[in-house]
Simulated assay, not measured.
Amino acid sequence: MSRLRLAATLSLLSITALSGCANMYSSESAAVYSKSDMRQVHEVEYGKVLDVKTVKMEGDKNDLLTLGGTALGGIAGSSIGQGRGSAAGAVIGAMVGGMAAQTMQRGATKDAYELTVQTDKGRTISIVQEADVPISAGQRVKILTGNGTARVLPM
């Protein structure tokens, strides 16, 4: 295997591994609470689900992963040619590596629900959250709001 192929293969494997780590701790799930949600007062409201629509939630942008892709692309590109060719390869490789890392991050979508809920107080609200807690139309739910977030949980 040539040096260029080896560098490119290692770069892609590293970006893929890092992108998996990036999403490990971020969640838009109704069942996952951030540290800033702990010991905070949340308003509780009850209601009935009118509609559940499955949507896609785009992947998170992570500047560290983009920087890693840029660096790895630059290293891989620098193995092309000698002298100025190597420098030009490094610049082009860095640009391609950074763009590839960003594209991979945006493409890492998750399933989500757009929930339309009729509250017992007569309001109709819509909340989008990760589709990991089963919720169906007609179901009674609890809506928690506070700390700038809202979540719908089955009763």
Rank of each mutant, 00 (worst) to 15 (best):
L4H: 00
A7E: 01
A8H: 02
L10N: 03
I15G: 06
I15W: 04
S19W: 03
S19R: 00
G20E: 13
C21F: 10
A22Y: 04
M24V: 09
Y25M: 05
S26V: 05
A30F: 02
V32L: 02
S34R: 04
S34F: 01
S34P: 01
K35H: 04
K35I: 00
V44M: 06
E45D: 07
G47C: 03
G47T: 00
V52I: 12
V52H: 07
V55F: 10
K56R: 15
D60T: 13
L64D: 14
T66Q: 13
G68M: 07
G69D: 09
L72W: 09
G74L: 09
I75K: 03
G77A: 10
S78M: 09
S78H: 09
S78Y: 10
S78P: 06
G83Y: 06
G83L: 06
R84V: 13
S86L: 04
I92D: 09
I92Y: 12
G98T: 08
A100L: 15
A100S: 14
T103P: 10
T103V: 13
M104R: 07
R106Q: 15
D111W: 09
A112R: 03
A112H: 12
Y113T: 10
L115H: 12
Q118S: 15
T119V: 10
T119E: 12
T124V: 15
S126V: 11
S126K: 09
S126L: 04
A131I: 01
G138Q: 01
G138W: 00
R140F: 03
K142A: 05
K142S: 06
I143C: 03
N147S: 03
G148R: 01
T149R: 04
T149I: 05
T149P: 02
R151K: 09
L153T: 03
L153A: 02
